[in-house]
Computed example of a mutant assay.
Amino acid sequence: MTIELVIPSRRKDLGGFEVGRVLPWTKRRMVGPFIFFDHMGPVNFPPQVPRKTDVRPHPHIGLSTITYLYEGEIVHRDSVGFHQTIRPGEVNWMTAGRGISHSERFDSIRDTGGALNGIQAWVALPEAAEETSPSFVHFDAGQLPSHAEQGLSVKVIAGSAYGMTSPVQTHSPLFYVHLELDAGRTTDVCGGYSERAVYIAKGSVRLNGERYETGQMAVVSPGAMPSITAVEPSIVMLLGGEAVGPRNIWWNFVSSSKERIEQAKADWKAGRIQLPVDDDKEFIPLPEDPPPAAQPM
């Protein structure tokens, strides 16, 4: 068996735009250390994007977030002091560790409007790194290893794949790859990891002959080496790595310990997690139990 299971994206309204939520899912909570995977948009914002569309300051613990755009711009601010405009093809890797807060706003397209299309993913930290110091790193698109040939382009966002290694430092073995294929072009899913998945961000592909459409994630069976053939021009994300063990997830908090999540809840409610520098006038309050869907970005 080449494909272990197929995870559908479920549309979620975030109050201004929709996302397609893929992970976590009832039948598969994680792929390697990837514990959360949202496809933002695609959406075209009109001019005068309302501020309610922004993601106000909110906290995280125990994970790294990766914001990766195909279209649009998002302005990131965090409690470590980073202020970064996120643009297509760049890597913006924020490690929450023992606690961070950040906001994601549409300052740069607020007046004129514009497109937004991209992926927000979370990577659970291994237990030894769950309480690491919070940090943020940014890499321009040209700093990431890539390869292009007739009808195919490959960019390694994080980890190692296809003989290339990203400069992004990770806390556990993983890979995250952006593929673009012309219609009819074929390539193999990279190996070397115990857990792997293929997400179709645009278009449709065949994996060893079986067709998969936009918004579907196909989890690859261990040891299988399926080929990907684009039925039409397609964007495909490959992701996975080595498992880090079971994780608890509550709202924006991820931890191997339920008690640590309770502490994070108390810390946010009491104001013990610092708000983002230059964006400390508002925040998302701690939700009541049960929590709403995890806040992306």
Rank of each mutant, 00 (worst) to 15 (best):
P276G: 05
I228V: 08
D279Y: 10
E288R: 14
Q216H: 01
A266V: 06
D278P: 10
T214P: 00
S227Y: 03
A230Q: 03
E242K: 09
A294G: 15
V244M: 04
D289M: 11
L239S: 03
S255Q: 09
P285W: 09
E242M: 11
D279Q: 11
T229E: 10
D280E: 10
T214I: 03
L275C: 06
W268R: 06
S234H: 03
Y212V: 00
F283Q: 13
E242P: 00
V220K: 03
E288S: 14
R211A: 12
E259W: 08
G271Q: 07
A293Y: 15
S227A: 11
D279N: 14
I235T: 09
A270T: 13
G240A: 07
L239D: 02
W268F: 12
Q216G: 01
P290S: 06
P287L: 12
N252V: 10
Q295G: 02
A294S: 15
I235F: 05
S227I: 00
S255P: 01
G245R: 04
W251G: 01
I249N: 08
M225N: 09
P292M: 10
P276R: 06
P292K: 12
E242A: 09
Y212E: 03
G241Q: 05
E259G: 05
Q295M: 15
P285F: 07
V244N: 04
E213L: 08
D279K: 10
A218H: 00
I235H: 08
V220Q: 00
W250R: 11
E213Y: 05
E282R: 14
A230T: 04
G240C: 08
Q274G: 11
E282K: 12
V254D: 07
P246E: 11
E213D: 13
P222R: 00
G245K: 05
P226L: 02
P287G: 08
R260G: 00
K281W: 13
S234Q: 05
